[in-house]
Design a protein around this nucleic acid. Structure first.
Lengths: 199, 199
DNA sequence: CCGAAAAGATGTTCAACAACATCTTTTGAG
DNA sequence: CTCAAAAGATGTTGTTGAACATCTTTTCGG
């Protein structure tokens, strides 16, 4: 069997990675299979050797750094370092950072795609849910002395992170968008019991 | 000039109303002009007598009950009554209600369309921003003795309302969705200084 | 170095859509 | 009652898409 067994997986992840960026930027409907394959350096024909349909790929594009450690969502220098403790606060700051706000293509899919997902099939919604659950787990993994937030609090923090960014991205005035990010960040840090050293 | 001058406006709002529902359910791209006009009882031809393009209509479909009192977003019996005081708490409860969660078509566009808007033109983003600003104003219109929330708090409450609902809608498990709505509701009420009488 | 299988490129089909042009109907003003 | 303007219906065009079939190229095992 020609081609090393790695090759198929390599190309496959290359397709998914490119598709993530395209979906993040333009949404599910507006992206064509031809573009997706083009981003991976291929032409449309081979697509169905890797995925049963566009929707199938979509669900896989929901992978984010909460579910997949090496997914590479780092948002320009904003990193989350588990060894530094207080993971929850780190996540909040990274999530609502200016970098994440600007970096549409490498955005967390939970921010960029919730509308499409809500309208999509169960498979996409399950993938979204996975990412969300993973985020909750991370938010509760607080190693600091502040104590872990309970589950309802962790859910509210997630809502603030995702909601704050969604709203900021949908606003035209960058001033309002910034205000929203900061307000959500501050509220989330307070909720978590993590002190808020301003911007 | 035949046709009473009212007629044009009547048909126009009929088109917008129908388009809102269609956009809420299926998003911008997936809805065709033919469907929009069909929902208004017309055929596609007349569309361009009312709107310059599909995008123009889209911006108008962002109208919600924060910007337009008689927009009719009432979510099945869940009403906001300014005379009953504590408007902020009423908004939070209505916004994160089961009814609003289920009533996709009559949903607040800020929940249903932020993704499309973020990807769309400046006109749509300005319309979204209008709705958001109007919501903030209402959230600060607290008439109770609890005192008005300050602006950052109002922004955070809005993020919780919109974000909580967005995430709930994108999740597959209705249990998680409910949990999220309740957690966001509780956190928002606490933030506002309004007591939280549970579900 | 050969050939089979995997990978990828190209072709086809059918359907949908936006935008606009043009034709037909409706309506109230005079 | 008439007619012109507004409203609405229908036709046209050019484009794009998903899905799948089929052809060509690449690659590595023997």
């Amino acid at each position: 069997m020609p081609y090393p067994p790695r090759h198929h997986d390599e190309v496959r992840t290359r397709i998914v990675r490119g598709a993530q960026r395209l979906f993040n930027r333009r949404g599910f409907e507006a992206v064509s299979i031809e573009e997706i394959m083009g981003a991976a350096g291929l032409t449309r024909g081979g697509f169905y050797r890797y995925f049963g349909s566009k929707s199938d790929l979509y669900a896989e594009a929901m992978d984010c750094f909460f579910t997949n450690p090496d997914c590479g969502n780092r948002w320009e220098g904003v990193t989350v370092d588990p060894s530094r403790g207080n993971v929850g606060a780190q996540i909040v700051r990274a999530y609502l950072s200016r970098q994440h706000y600007q970096d549409i293509e490498d955005s967390c899919p939970m921010v960029a795609l919730p509308g499409d997902v809500a309208r999509g099939g169960a498979k996409a919604r399950r993938a979204y849910e996975n990412a969300l659950n993973a985020m909750i787990v991370h938010l509760q993994k607080d190693a600091g002395e502040a104590g872990r937030p309970d589950r309802p609090t962790a859910l509210a923090i997630a809502a603030l992170c995702i909601g704050g960014m969604v709203v900021a991205r949908a606003s035209d005035d960058i001033g309002l968008a910034t205000e929203m990010r900061e307000a959500a960040k501050s509220a989330a840090l307070t909720l978590g019991g993590w002190h808020d050293p301003g911007a």
